[in-house]
Computed example of a mutant assay.
Amino acid sequence: MSATNEYGQGVGAAVPGWEPRPRPEPVLLQGRHVTVEPLSSARYAELFAATCGDGDADLWTYRPIPRPGTLPELWMHLAAHLDDPALVTFALVPLEGDAAGTAAGIASYLRIEPAHGQVEVGGVLFGRALQRTRAATEAIHLLMRHAFDDLGYRRFEWKCDSRNEPSRRAARRLGFVEEGRFRNHMVTQGRNRDTDWFSVIDTDWPAVRTAHEQWLDPANFDAAGRQRRRLGELTAS
């Protein structure tokens, strides 16, 4: 709700008792279907196998670099994540399926602004074994839950190349609100990138969290693991 100050100007609503929030740290987040753990070099070979196979070039289309062709190339790419103080990067380790117990994807906290309670999940890369699984959805849920419930953040962002339709669908399915498009935002792999912005804010989160929990509930899946209700249906309601 907006307000008017003594000069007759519209101003934002007060945020009583606001203080800068803690900066995210590399923590272990344990779920029913996935473990989100701080990225370390011990997982690099698994990530290479999961995301850098001969048929995996399309996984890298919207990333800063093309698919690494060798483990040392991926090693240098991931080591740069660990060396960057602006990132907190996690390995995503499913607990079920063919990739159980091995790292099958990564995701990072970035654009971290503790003074304003804002953080983005980005650099999301799911290997084939992680795509369209309960583990993938739960991994993002755990990162959101940690930011909102443990750290007290007010805003959680998701951004993607405007041409990355699977990422756009994932954002909407997870309950993010589309906010707009930043034109000519970046040059990625020598190509222009317009970037679409999505967010969940603290007042959205209780309903989004409930929708995630309802979808992840074992009762929402039959004996063959098929969902009874779609997450997009739950977040839309």
Rank of each mutant, 00 (worst) to 15 (best):
Q30R: 13
E233Q: 12
E6I: 10
G10K: 01
F126N: 09
T195W: 00
R43C: 11
L110W: 13
L231F: 09
Q227V: 04
A115L: 00
A211K: 06
R181A: 06
L231G: 12
N5A: 05
N184V: 00
A207Q: 11
L78V: 04
G232I: 08
G225R: 00
Y62Q: 05
R154W: 03
G8M: 02
A139G: 08
R183H: 14
L39C: 09
L174I: 07
I201Y: 05
R155S: 12
A207P: 13
T61I: 05
E25F: 04
A129T: 07
Y62K: 03
Q227A: 10
L59T: 09
F156N: 10
P26H: 12
E213M: 03
G190A: 04
G105N: 06
E19F: 02
E73W: 02
L216C: 11
I201F: 04
Y109T: 05
D196S: 10
P72W: 01
S108H: 03
P38D: 08
V11M: 09
L28M: 11
R32Q: 15
I106M: 08
S199E: 07
S2E: 12
L39I: 08
S2H: 14
E157R: 01
R134K: 08
G175A: 03
G17S: 11
P16C: 09
T35Y: 13
G53A: 03
P64S: 07
F148Q: 07
A211R: 06
N220D: 15
R168S: 13
